[in-house]
Each structure stands twice: as structure tokens, then as C-alpha cells.
Computed example of a mutant assay.
Amino acid sequence: MLSEKSTSVVRATLPAVGAAIADITPLFYRKMFAAHPELLRDLFNRGNQANGTQSRALAGSIAVFAGLLLEHPDERPDRMLARIAHKHASLGITADQYTIVHRYLFEAIAEVLGDAVTPEVAAAWDEVYWLMAGALIAMEARLYAGAGVEDGDVWRPWRVVHRQEETADVATFVLRPADGGPVPPFKPGQYVSVRVPLPDGARQIRQYSLVCAPGGEEWWISVKRIAGDPAGEVSDRLHTDVREGDVLTVGEPFGDVVLDEEDGPVLLASAGIGCTPMIGMLSHLADTGSPRPVTVVHGDRGPADHAHRERLELLTDKLPDASVHVWYERPEGPWPAERTGYVDLSGVEIPEGVRAYLCGPVPFMRSVRTRLLERGVPASRVHYESFGPDLGLDA
């Protein structure tokens, strides 16, 4: 994929670029947002920009892609690219925006590395960038075509027909197309983007898993209010202002972490609001009367904080071969000592041939993935969904 000349240059400069990329990416964003403030206002997650996670994710994706090109020159890292492409499609990213990113990213590289960026080095990394960008553009075009929309045209008005309080800080919004049109199909585990107008004129976008089964007349999303300083500006807006009858701008469903169509055992492991894609998968399994062995593992602060706790019981009761294992850090009333604290898989049977799906905070997913690998589950059968920028589980 990478030319022979560029391969040698990238191999020689990857350590230097990797060491400097933590300085390159913040400068890149400052330059790009100064020239295109609408991108920060209406596209990029301002919270992730403020805490630096977006910069770390970009740095990781560039370094990983370049490294994979060197290690496996005859293979394209489609699994990594698919995750990015689905997220981009959910945001309505278009091909022309890659040119904008290229300009300011390479300006930042030249400024940080100075004389080390010779024409030869610039040309080699330019090739890396456009190999990655070209693959993503092609993937995203296929995703848009599969959704039956023009590139980037993912937005549609949806009316809130019901709102339900799951916990003190989690609300479920039941949505129907405001234009009376059909409900698009989706796969269990996928998410949709919601674009919310804010008081300062920004239209910020966040992704929420669909907690309903495919094929219905409604979409269900559950939103957790994000506390802190600053608090989650979109989640707070949805919790404070959105009621039954209001209209939200919602995107097409995307996401590459979806329930497989095999007939073998499934492990669904989540923590906190990470239960939402798992509830979507369970809804599908229950609705289809699946005979598959299903193991559900969940960790939360306490019963009052456990969103969809009753629904979890109802769904698993419908399955002929399902087991549920729940841990609470602060249980209320009588509760088994072995289920108090953080999730511990040591006492959970892991069936042979299991396919595992993880969602929750990165430390939780990293811990569960590590335990699964130690118990012989192949890495290729462990899938995870990250709500924020994907920082990887191998770090």
C-alpha cells in the first residue's frame, strides 16, 4: 500500500513523529478552529476538545495506521478504519473536510518539527495521510449509500413521543419520525447521533445507543446527565429542556460493533450507562426468541443508579438460556459479598466459543478484555464500543 520510498522514510521518522504528535495535534486544532470556527461550534465535541481526549485519539489513529502500514504492508487495517468511518458517517463528515484537516495538520507538523520536515519526509507522511483518508472516504461513501442518503445528509427531525426517567440521572426518550416517514432499519448495538442547539448558537452532536430492538415503529435512546465542571452541555440540555412533543434532529444509525448472526454463546459486559447497547442487543435476542446461551455481566454504583435494571430482568427472563451477574459498589440492603465492588469474572463461567461485547469506561473494558484473553477467548472475538474518542484498550 505504501510506496517503497515512503516506507523507508516513515519507518525512520515514525519515532520522532510519534514523540511529537502530542504537541502537533493541539496546534493543529488551534489552527483549524481559528480558520473554521464552525467546525468546533457544530461538529467537534467541545467537551472532548477541552479535556484533550480528541487530540489523544487523533494521535493514536495516525500512529497506529502508520505502524500497521509498516508491519503489514499487504493488508489494510479495515477493522480500525471501520470504527472511524462509522463515527464519521454518524456526524455527516464529507470528503472535502479531509482536505481542510490535511492543510492544518501538515502546517502543525512543519511548525513543530521544523527543519526535520524535509520535502522527502513531507511527501512520505502526505502519502500516509491520503492512504488513510482515501480509505475512510470510500468506506463512508458506502455507509451513506447503504443508508440511502447523499454523502453527509444524515439528519432528520424526530418527535419525542414519550420520556421516561430511568434513574435520577438517566432518561429514556422514545422517538418517531416527525415527517411521518418510515423508521430506518438498524443492527442491534448501533447508535444514532443527536444534534442539539445550545444557548450560544452552537449545534453540538452526541451519539446514543439504540436500546430498542430493530423493526419497530419507534427508536429509544437513553441519555445520562454528565456531571462535573463543565457538565455535559448536550446531556444537560436534553434532561432540562426536552419533553414529550418536542422535536430533535437525529442522524441515521451507524456503528460497527453489532450483534453477530451466529448461533453460539454471547457475553454482554457493561458498566454504568454502557448497558445501553447491551439492552439493544438483548431486546433483539428476546424479540426473536433466540436460543443462544447469553451471559450478562454488569457493574454499577448501586441499584438506584442501574439504568434499565427491571428491563434487564424482563428481557433475560424471555431467553431460555440466559444468566445475569451484577456487581454494585454500594449495594442497598442484603447483597452477596462476592457481587460487591467491581466486576470480577473469576466466578463467571465463560463458554467455549463465546463472542463478547463490552461497553463502559475504558478501565472497565480494558480489565474485562484482559481477563477474557487470559481465559482463552481470542482477541478477534472480543468487541467493544467506546462512547467518546477511541483511545484503544491495549494502552
Rank of each mutant, 00 (worst) to 15 (best):
V294I: 14
F44L: 13
A304F: 00
R142Y: 01
P177E: 13
G272V: 11
I84V: 15
L210K: 11
I24L: 00
E329V: 03
A34T: 15
V183M: 06
G264R: 10
E352N: 09
D321W: 02
S55N: 13
Q49D: 06
V161I: 15
G347R: 11
V128R: 13
W125E: 02
D246W: 08
N51S: 09
L40V: 00
Y328D: 08
T167K: 14
A82V: 12
G92Y: 07
T25Q: 08
P197K: 05
A57T: 09
G347W: 12
E107R: 02
P363I: 01
T288I: 04
E75L: 05
E127P: 13
L58K: 02
P157S: 03
P119N: 13
L68Y: 05
V211D: 02
Q204H: 04
Y357R: 07
P73Y: 12
V170C: 06
L373R: 14
R237P: 03
N51R: 15
D300Y: 00
R159Q: 15
R142V: 01
R237F: 10
E166A: 01
L81G: 05
P230M: 03
P265E: 05
F106H: 05
A122T: 01
S235I: 01
E111G: 05
W220Q: 13
E313W: 10
A12T: 04
I221K: 08
V117E: 02
G228R: 04
D236C: 06
K5T: 14
K187I: 04
R103P: 11
F65P: 11
V326H: 06
Y129L: 03
L70P: 09
G181K: 06
F28N: 11
F173K: 10
M281C: 13
V377P: 12
R142L: 11
E71H: 01
Y342C: 04
P185N: 06
V174W: 08
C212D: 15
P320Y: 05
T340L: 10
L70C: 06
R330H: 13
A35D: 11
G146Y: 09
P185T: 14
E38H: 02
D263L: 01
L113H: 00
L393M: 15
V121R: 08
W219T: 06
R225K: 14
W327E: 14
A20Q: 07
A213K: 11
E120D: 15
Q164Y: 07
Y328H: 15
H36V: 10
V354Q: 04
V234L: 10
R309G: 05
P334F: 08
T276L: 00
L393G: 09
P334T: 08
